[in-house]
Amino acid sequence: MQEIWGGFVRAIDLIITLNAQVVEITTRSLYISLSSAFLAAVICVPLGGLIEFHSFRGKKILVNLIQTLYSLPTVTVGLIVFLLISRSGPLGSLGLLFSPWGMVFGQAILVSPIMIGLTVTALAAVSPQIKDTARSLGATEIQIIVTVINEARQAVMAAVLLGFGRALSEVGVAMMIGGNIRGYTRVLTTSIALETSMGNLELSMALGMILISISLVINLLLNRVQGR
């Protein structure tokens, strides 16, 4: 108990004095996860639109499969992406392993099922009359999709935010793809894992508290966006 309290006090101190290491790691965490959420959103939201607007055989199965992948273990994704982007893998020539770009790529894959699945759900909730109205007013198929996404934008935004939250708080991909390189690919979660294993519990707690605070902000934003 003593230890937890001491760590807590020291953590607060590290945060309010804007400890350089803490600030650096937090910033990196944010931009890597934001980039992966952005990359995933750019691909997954339209993809969700395509799935929702086309009827094809196996659509139900596909959507079920995507929903199953919501809780894809991060280490599994880490391993698969590692094998993909390792120099000996099919995408090896890009040199993405152990770089922030690789992490962005891996996390984007990790959060894709959530973003696609929740986008499909969000779009399915839009009245089919909106589609008919847009079409009757001369919209192209793509314009129709954009219109429907715009109608569901709060729920779609929520999907993107949830993806961002998952990217920010995961450790498997960050560790396996980033390699936890100090000053380059070390982010909040991998730092916590490392510092804890090295017994630097106070720094770990400070970073953990920051992570929780960011998640809290995301959650508040989510509630706001969903109009609760």
């Binding site: 934001l34 980039s35 952005f38 934008r153 709060q154 993107v160 934003l221 966006v225």
Partner: peptide
């Protein structure tokens, strides 16, 4: 909602800029 969307989008754009700087 539009305001939130706009802020979120600009933050995201910023993030991408940051990341390209790293690259």
């Amino acid at each position: 909602a539009r305001k939130i969307l706009l802020t979120a989008l600009s933050v995201l754009a910023l993030a991408v800029l940051c990341c390209s700087a790293v690259a």
